[in-house]
Simulated assay, not measured.
Amino acid sequence: MSVIHLEAAGQEALARAEKLLGEIPGGVEKAVRSAMARSVAHLRTGSVRAIRERYDISAANVRADENVFVRYSYQNGVQATVTFAGRRIPLYRFGGASPSRPSGRVSAWGHALKSTSPTQFLNAFVARMPPPASHTGIFERTGAKTSGGKDQIRELFGPAVPQMLGSRDVEERLSREAMEKFEDRLDHEINAILNGWRKRL
């Protein structure tokens, strides 16, 4: 699990919002909440971009196994706690996985990091699992037997989304970029509310 905390309290941007929207009922709260929601959306997009800087994986495959939970608090400003969770991602979903079609006879290749070349797994193969799993993955034989006498296999996985975000430097950079987005968006929200209010007068 990876957690990034965003907090807007006491900043110059909030003081400006209170000064400009103070006479509009609910104006400050509306502007701040909307700006923070956009900031969180920016953070989520940025997290995928940060992962793909280092890992050979498509945005769609990141999002497929990404669970994001957002909790807001509106005491003394506005805070958002963004939690990234999710299981380890099948190695087959990373770039460089081959063969592209299931085969039980050909050695499989795969890797997770962009900085490495795909590795050949001599005792592994690409296969599509039957329902209810129904997904394609890279599997290797463990050398053991199942209770039915068949070769026991296990799927190979890359890291999970929280592991790929993992670095504190990455989390701090994403937080900083999200708060810059908050301040930019807050100005937009202030102007939109002011324009709407003036039209009513």
Rank of each mutant, 00 (worst) to 15 (best):
V3D: 11
I4H: 01
I4D: 02
H5I: 14
A8M: 13
Q11M: 14
Q11Y: 11
A17V: 04
A17F: 02
K19P: 11
E23I: 11
G26P: 01
K30Y: 01
K30F: 01
A37E: 15
A37T: 07
S39N: 00
V40D: 07
A41D: 13
A41I: 09
H42I: 04
L43K: 03
T45Q: 10
V48L: 10
R49N: 15
I51W: 03
E53T: 11
A59F: 06
V62D: 07
R63L: 13
E66V: 05
V68T: 08
F69T: 03
V70G: 00
V70H: 00
S73K: 11
G77C: 09
G77W: 10
A80H: 02
V82R: 00
F84I: 15
A85E: 14
G86D: 03
G86V: 02
G86F: 01
P90I: 10
P90N: 04
Y92G: 14
R93Q: 04
S100I: 09
S100G: 10
R105L: 12
V106D: 10
S107N: 12
A108Y: 00
G110L: 10
Q120K: 15
L122M: 07
L122G: 05
A124N: 03
A124Y: 01
V126M: 04
V126F: 05
H135A: 10
T136W: 08
T136Q: 08
F139Y: 14
R141K: 01
R141I: 02
T142I: 06
K145F: 05
S147Q: 12
S147D: 09
K150G: 13
D151N: 03
R154F: 12
E155D: 07
G158L: 13
A160G: 15
V161H: 02
M164W: 05
S167I: 12
S175N: 02
S175Q: 02
E177L: 06
A178N: 01
M179F: 03
E183M: 05
E183T: 09
E189R: 01
E189S: 08
A192P: 03
K199S: 15
R200N: 14
L201Y: 07
